[in-house]
């Protein structure tokens, strides 16, 4: 939905990830960009250049925080130091909502720094939802969970990935960051219809959408964020926009990063779908 309680009732347009190779371009040329997404962990520090640059960006642009290591799905409770630093950054960035992944990545205090897939069980859904609620209560802004790309499925799973996402979102009463590239990657790796996934997501909970490129190997696809968005992903995006309306959209490009203009131009291709959604809403 354009503006809802899961994205702080904002109506953001098309953003791109704030990445260090583009800092100079952004700060000196001041390009027109609807918003930037930052990786929270890069700025959960005490001082130095990254925070100075963030402050300069915040003077000119809207910023939304996206995390990579809260691990809502890890069986252990949230790390208090992590939460404290995250909240400090939330107060600095004034992000209207915060997102992180529906995954796990740490156990017994050891971190893999990966987005590991969840077993789709009711026990995991309950535990994950509880953790999302704890985080949201602590940081006091809306939280959206993002579906991840995956390369493995567990024997113990009791439902599909989209059923699990819906179960968690309902139990936690949280938003969804719908990554249509991740849906595509997982659909290829696990042989399901990606449109079934997109059609099953509760539209009213979608706070934001991610688009990205990936790398295709002979027997699987890896979510590498180092290519332009491919047509099948744009088609999924079109269907998602058709269902949820004009929604804050972000292009992720994290490796082999081209020029700022190339990344931004790729992101702006989303406009053709957003425009038709706006038109449909107006009719």
């Amino acid at each position: 939905m354009p503006a809802n309680r899961f994205n702080g009732h904002t109506d953001y347009g098309i953003g791109i990830g704030l990445r260090s190779p583009h800092y100079h371009h952004i700060l000196t040329r001041k390009p027109v960009v609807d918003w930037f997404e930052i990786i929270s962990e890069n700025f959960m520090i005490d001082g130095g250049r990254p925070l100075r640059i963030l402050d300069q960006i915040l003077e000119q642009y809207k910023v939304v925080q996206h995390g990579v290591s809260m691990y809502f799905g890890s069986a252990e409770r949230p790390n208090r130091e992590h939460l404290r630093r995250l909240k400090t950054l939330v107060q600095r960035s004034k992000t209207p909502w915060l997102s992180d992944h529906l995954c796990w990545g740490s156990v017994d205090g050891r971190y893999t720094h990966d987005l590991l897939p969840m077993p789709y069980t009711f026990e995991a859904a309950r535990s994950t939802a509880q953790k999302i609620r704890e985080v949201r209560d602590f940081i006091e802004i809306p939280v959206a969970v993002e579906n991840v790309s995956s390369y493995a499925e567990f024997h113990v799973s009791e439902m599909t990935e989209w059923e699990f996402l819906n179960e968690v979102a309902e139990r936690a009463d949280c938003g969804i960051l719908l990554d249509v590239n991740n849906i595509y990657v997982s659909s290829q790796n696990h042989s399901f219809d990606p449109f079934t996934y997109v059609n099953s997501v509760p539209a009213e909970r979608v706070a934001q959408i991610h688009i990205a490129g990936h790398s295709k190997y002979r027997r699987y696809i890896l979510d590498t964020h180092d290519h332009p968005v491919i047509d099948p992903v744009w088609k999924l995006y079109a269907r998602a926009i058709e269902r949820v309306g004009h929604t804050a959209t972000l292009l992720e490009w994290d490796d082999s990063i081209p020029s700022f203009d190339e990344v931004h131009d790729e992101a702006l291709k989303a406009n053709r779908f957003l425009a038709s959604a706006s038109l449909a809403a107006a009719v």
Binding site: D108, L116, A124
Partner: peptide, 15 residues
């Protein structure tokens, strides 16, 4: 298999 047990086994394998 319980969530914590599964995550311990997988993390051990991954690392």
């Amino acid at each position: 298999m319980k969530l914590l047990n599964l995550q311990r086994r997988m993390a051990r394998a991954v690392m």
